[in-house]
Amino acid sequence: MAQLIDFPLKAATRAGNALTLPLRAAWPVHSVDDYGRDPHLIRALTPFAQLRWSVTVGGVQHLPANKGALLVCNSRRYSLSAVYAALALSDETGRPVRFVGRPDIAPIGPFMRRIGGLLATPADVLNALSHHELVLVAAAGTSHPRNAGKVPHELIGPAVVAGLPVLPVATMSSAIGRAARVEVGPAVRPRRKRRGPLAEVELADEVQHHLQRMLDGFGGVQTGVAPIDWLTEG
């Protein structure tokens, strides 16, 4: 009688296993990390990312080996610089680099969380930094690839609170070509010691200046007309 009752359950399980067996072979069973980042998915997507970006990474010696740090990159509008920079730096350092700025709406939000995205909120950034993670924040997007936009001081605050270094990351990519560059600069130190919120405001300005200097140091053609300059980047 017990076998009779169990039969439909066993039949359904057997049928389900037969249906999902090929999928399982292609998609090994994994879990995600504490923040929802899925290293297996990232590995699976890497060839597709490499079709779009061929990234040259420099300056990784500035990144702390074990401790957390806040990285700030410049961003040309619609270039997804935070995404490719985070993926390239993760690949280079062997540590997960989490980028800030995933939307909290399906389907793009959950997908970006799986590839290492955090919400653009101080709470999320502080939480990751306090667990010694590398977190990448993008400056405000600009139309010109060599202009560093305003650095959001509210997202710099968590690094000040956690007492962790803030490093500029200059990124450069072409709108049409694959070549992209990611250069990590040395940690930015605030000029003055502040006790209050001015610390992060001044540090954000300082990081923007450093980013701009790094972008200027990249060289290349600068006509002042954004679409023409895009063609020569990368």
Partner: peptide, 15 residues
């Protein structure tokens, strides 16, 4: 650690 529902389903060999 964490897990998604699909990953849990796959771990349990459910459909």
């Amino acid at each position: 650690g964490a897990i998604t529902t699909l990953q849990a389903i796959m771990r349990g060999k459910r459909v």
